[in-house]
Design a protein around this nucleic acid. Structure first.
Lengths: 152, 152
DNA sequence: TAAAATGATAGTCAAACAAAGTCAAAAAGG
DNA sequence: CCTTTTTGACTTTGTTTGACTATCATTTTA
């Protein structure tokens, strides 16, 4: 398993245990996970972004910390924000992060998330030239999320 | 015996051992089979297609993998016939007919059918030039049908 | 006491690494 | 011939690492 996934899991468990808010020291977490500190930064910047519904605050220097807070919004609002944040292009990694996050937060069923992931996969889009796949992904996923919301 | 057939056999045995889903690293498998990595890609693209009842997922980069999932053993034969009849191109009218038919016959839930219809709609595919949309529809729908009935 | 030094943090960025994907040419079958 | 298979060079994607920078609180110094 990737270090990235381990760190994600660990942070999610912290969020779970503390009802939506996790605070830690970057170096300490890196130590317990057995990775370099910048890996923590990588995980946060790729997996706990505002688009994913997380607020990240931090402070450097002595007594520094990183705090991640799950933004509390009802499902429709969260979906709307998400759809608006997607724009014209969506790479597959981000698509995957979005969908697993929605499933994790129980905004989508695991089944819906899997179907959507399939719909935006490279396999499904193989008929399109690689350089427009990200545009297709954006269009497809936005439509799917809207559909999932309105068909609830 | 051809290398291709050896690789097919090996993957089939993995699928058997793991009840319908096999995950491996392309390079590793190539190593154990004694072939170049791209041969694995060739085998997958020619022998583990949706037409043959398989769904393929993959990831690049560190910790990358290829995962092949077989369709459920009790998947409706109609579904498989359908996937085979689709070919390289599927116009939106036919897609609509197919999906409402599947829902009608209760092979798909109404929700799944609606999501799939959204995924192959012109709206969702607006980023693609009109002349390739039918090709995209074919690829997307075939993959979605496999996903809806994939083992595990 | 104000300024400077110190040490404890987190942030940034690019390079190194670890995969899988693509494509076209060569080889092998039929 | 024509199709399928085999091969390998090259591309793209995603992760990991580490050197360097920025910031903040505390302690020392002038």
């Amino acid at each position: 398993m990737r270090m990235t996934d381990n760190v994600v899991q660990y942070i999610l468990s912290l969020l779970e245990a503390e009802h939506g808010s996790a605070e830690f020291r970057r170096n300490e977490l890196a130590e317990t996970m057995g990775c370099v500190p910048s890996q923590i930064s990588y995980v946060i910047s790729s997996r706990f972004t505002p688009e994913q519904g997380y607020l990240v605050e931090s402070r450097r220097g002595g007594g520094g910390y990183i705090r991640i807070t799950r933004v509390q919004r009802d499902a429709p609002t969260l979906l709307m924000h998400l759809v608006n944040s997607i724009g014209e292009s969506l790479d597959r990694t981000t698509a995957g992060v979005i969908l697993s996050n929605l499933a994790e937060r129980k905004i989508l069923s695991v089944r819906d998330a899997k179907l959507m992931a399939t719909a935006v996969s490279d396999q499904a889009l193989s008929a399109a030239a690689p350089d427009i796949r990200d545009n297709l992904r954006a269009g497809i996923l936005k439509n799917l999320l809207m559909a999932a919301y309105s068909a609830t």
